[in-house]
Design a protein around this nucleic acid. Structure first.
Lengths: 208, 208, 208, 208
DNA sequence: GATGAATGAGGGTTCATTCAT
DNA sequence: AATGAATGAACCCTCATTCAT
């Protein structure tokens, strides 16, 4: 029951943050969207920033946990890379609400390093750790593939990872933008998926 | 002298917008950073949003104008693509201040569609036009290369462009993040440049 | 409870507007005078101008409604004129706070025509309508009296009305000025009442 | 030359004060209307309020001085009253610019009592004196007429004067309102003049 | 004298946060 | 637990006033 409310707040907040931007989103609008009163939000979260951080932390924890589970099944670096990218994609494209996340993450992540609110230090550290963990997962797979000779060695894993993540985010973000602004971007969810596959095949894998 | 001040405001605003986010940047901080008083900002710009739009418009105008000039020299689609990407990179990496732009653009562009302030409608329309023009330039080159058989036809130009732009932005953004947060990103400007080249070669060009 | 607060804001605003003039009255002073915080004012009114318009609208609605009720009892034009003037006087002299109204109305009415704030258009239109209705009530009575031969025909009803309203407002305003500046005006509420009666008898009625 | 500029400032200020209201009038608009720079205004006036007070003081001085001159010619109280009212009317109706004065006086006079700016105390006192002098002139004429039995004694001179001044101001203000808002009030300058004459004849004079 | 760029105090307004109910 | 009225700090923006030129 309580958890249900907390979850509803997080969902409505994700939507409102995405549509209005963090600052222009108001707690009262988030609460109304969640079907509760303004004040009750503060029973579940310390403050507005805490809501944002919670959204991000949950996303990172979820993806890291999924990766951990699903990566045990895969052995080959390429399979592992597909798995990670699939989890990423899956979490973001599965429904409308999830698409908002890309927007929110994009806006918020760069600022998390400099959060000073004492009440939120612990959550901030967790986020940074989870983020590093996600990055490490990807970079390790890339390094492993390079070692095995199946991935191109001409670029550092860190740059390869940036290219992959930047591309996937942008491609998915385009999908979000279409649905929320009405402007047509000219491609579909399937096109987006295909692009990621081809990017891995051409940019990461060594040519045979 | 006047133009100097306007320019200084734009520079300091770019910095502050990048560091704090548009919404948390205050006019008084921007003004202080520019070495002038709060009020004077309003002699040069209609309001806070106008400052943001001006930054974006100038960037888009500059890059479109550069592309127009330099693209006449190139004939082959691949050369054209290199040229456009080079202009993009060049404008963003040449100095510290320019790096802020990526951050600002990323944050602001999605919201521009929905600006309602009457005073800014003209500027808003200009930005949308310049942005479409930039997109069209890239998409035309990609389509041209596909027609000629030198670029892969398995993806629509619009998706290819998203991958290219997302990757380049993220890679460059990493550089910005390093300098402003102190965290090490693990690669250099040269690595970034090399990544773009290889991305084009592998992801866009047909394999020979 | 809520209505009580709205009413208190309107009362304190009337006072402060009267004493300082609309333009120099501050919301924070109005709120303090009403015993609430600045922000709460905005729960009841859209903005400062809305407070002013509400004061005026309520006054006009009240006087028009009173006129409508009390005019049914009167038949002779002179009785009707007395009734209307009595309502006017009664509403303005009955207590100290109401006296402020004359001042506020005088200052504000001329500017209402040119209000552009979209949120206030409806209220603006209502005020204009109520004002026209009030004017029409008076002018109709004057025209009726002229037709019956009991009122002087040498002047148009519109001019007669201006003389009546200008005189009554100024005479009552003198009373207000006394109480709020400490300067002696040299006449009393009774003198004011008598003046209106005599003005009607001599200036409006035909000599017998 | 200097006096010419000072005069131009006063004229443009009268216009702008009337159209926008004192607070919403800006020094820069007044200066532009007068064809000079913002800063130069401060060579002629201590501050914005000084401009307003100067307009009022000059008006009061002018009318008092005219009254003094023209009243020597008149002997009978009725002639004197006509003279004073004529001067009043004449000063206000003679051209468009003068009409603005009614508006400005109406708005400003009530607040003059409470001006605290030390630089303006002298001017403030002068205005109060001139105003009292104007009132005294009228009241003396009315008292004189009452003594001679030509003016009605049933009301105190002070109330009679309020009725006269209120009526004349309102009637003339209607003319101003027409020209500046475009709304029709339904009477002309001649109607206004005729109204004043009849008001004196019926309301002030004893019936013969 | 004359300019108008520059200052900065002040007020309207918003909204995160609190707390009485 | 739940509400939402109430608070007040913070920020955008305006404009009277100053002063270097």
């Amino acid at each position: 029951m309580e958890d249900d409310k907390k979850h509803r707040i997080l969902e409505s907040a994700t939507k409102v943050f995405a549509e209005k931007g963090y600052q222009y989103a108001t707690i009262s609008e988030i609460a109304k969207e969640a079907g509760i009163s303004t004040g009750l939000t503060y029973s579940y979260f310390a403050n507005k920033l805490d809501v944002l951080l919670s959204i991000i932390l949950i996303f990172l924890e979820t993806i890291n946990s999924r990766n951990k589970k699903s990566l045990t099944a895969a052995v080959a670096p390429l399979d592992k890379l597909y798995t990670v990218m699939h989890n990423f994609e899956d979490l973001l494209i599965k429904d409308m609400k999830a698409l908002y996340l890309v927007k929110v993450l994009n806006e918020a992540l760069p600022h998390i390093v400099m959060i000073k609110d004492k009440k939120l230090q612990e959550k901030r550290k967790k986020i940074i750790l989870e983020n590093k963990s996600l990055i490490k997962t990807i970079d390790d797979i890339l390094a492993h593939g390079q070692k095995k000779g199946v991935f191109s060695k001409t670029l550092k894993p860190s740059v390869q990872r940036q290219v992959l993540c930047g591309a996937i985010e942008r491609v998915i973000y385009g999908l979000f933008f279409t649905t929320y602004s009405g402007e047509d971007i000219g491609y579909s969810t399937n096109d987006a998926h295909e692009a990621i596959i081809q990017l891995i095949d051409s940019f990461i894998c060594t040519k045979r």
